[in-house]
Write a protein that binds this DNA or RNA. Structure first.
Lengths: 154, 154
DNA sequence: CTAAGTGCAAAAATTTTGCAAACTA
DNA sequence: TAGTTTGCAAAATTTTTGCACTTAG
């Protein structure tokens, strides 16, 4: 699963998680989650808020922050930072996560998976006696689109 | 070179860089750089400021931010974020950078290098037609110390 | 002397928190 | 109805910026 792909059963999983903690499945929470899973990509709170408010006027930023944290706790979402001064969110599959290629020119984020990183992670963790939990690999570079734009500009 | 090791010639390199841009080598700038390179590790601004002020009372946080940015521009330092809500800095060698093992229990940061990551980076970049620039790999886990503390507590 | 840098405080920007009102179950 | 959640605004954090004063060259 990539970040652009919502887990088919996110609503059931989210609902179950909320209920398991004694929480309540409210309209704002569902609205934020629906927006997040329908828009795909790696939105930040600002971006989410625009779309959320177009569907349900009056929802506050605090609710978006709180709901995204809830989704993280539920294991459906992961919070990421790409050095922009704010957080972005992405879907988090039960089978693990994806790594990123980030264009330093236009900011585009492409996901990828590569088995070698898993092996590397195990090897390094063992070397330093760490109990491995998770990793994050971001590769920064120039995407094909920005390369051709640069070429055509001269 | 690891983050705990200052480049022997940082002062010459910093001075040259500043001069090359028409800037001035001031006492506060040298003080911040000296503190950073002498303390090692991955300090944040808060941490730097304490040490900086013990050597040169009256230096402001803005100067620390500005000097660290200057050091980044000079290629001597890199800014990193480990999801704590603030930035940390580390030395940046000309030959490239190091990756990190981060203890999710005590926050300790251990650096490592592994050739496989370089190959992986090249392979993935080529697969997606990116012009590769740099990467960042963080592996999160529990460090040996925290493992034994957990064991001895029960 | 002149342009650049400093420290301070104010401003920005992001995220968290307190609380009365609204809502879920 | 009881207890949770919401939206708002205020607070907390981290980082940036404006400006009068200081300083390097």
């Amino acid at each position: 699963m990539t970040a652009g792909t919502a887990p088919a059963n996110w609503k059931a999983r989210f609902t179950n998680y909320i209920r398991s903690t004694g929480g309540r499945v409210t309209r704002p929470r569902l609205c934020v989650a629906e927006v997040f899973f329908s828009m795909g990509g790696h939105p930040g709170v600002e971006e989410l808020l625009v779309e959320v408010r177009s569907r349900h006027k009056g929802i506050g930023a605090a609710t978006v922050y709180r709901t995204m944290k809830l989704l993280c706790d539920a294991g459906l979402v992961a919070s990421r930072q790409f050095g922009e001064g704010f957080s972005r969110y992405e879907t988090e599959g039960p089978e693990g996560h994806h790594d990123h290629l980030i264009c330093t020119s236009c900011g585009k984020i492409v996901e990828f998976e590569d088995e070698a990183i898993e092996e590397l992670q195990v090897r390094v963790s063992q070397r330093y006696d760490f109990i491995m939990q998770r990793h994050r690999l971001d590769i920064f570079g120039i995407c094909p689109t920005c390369q051709s734009e640069k070429r055509s500009r001269g």
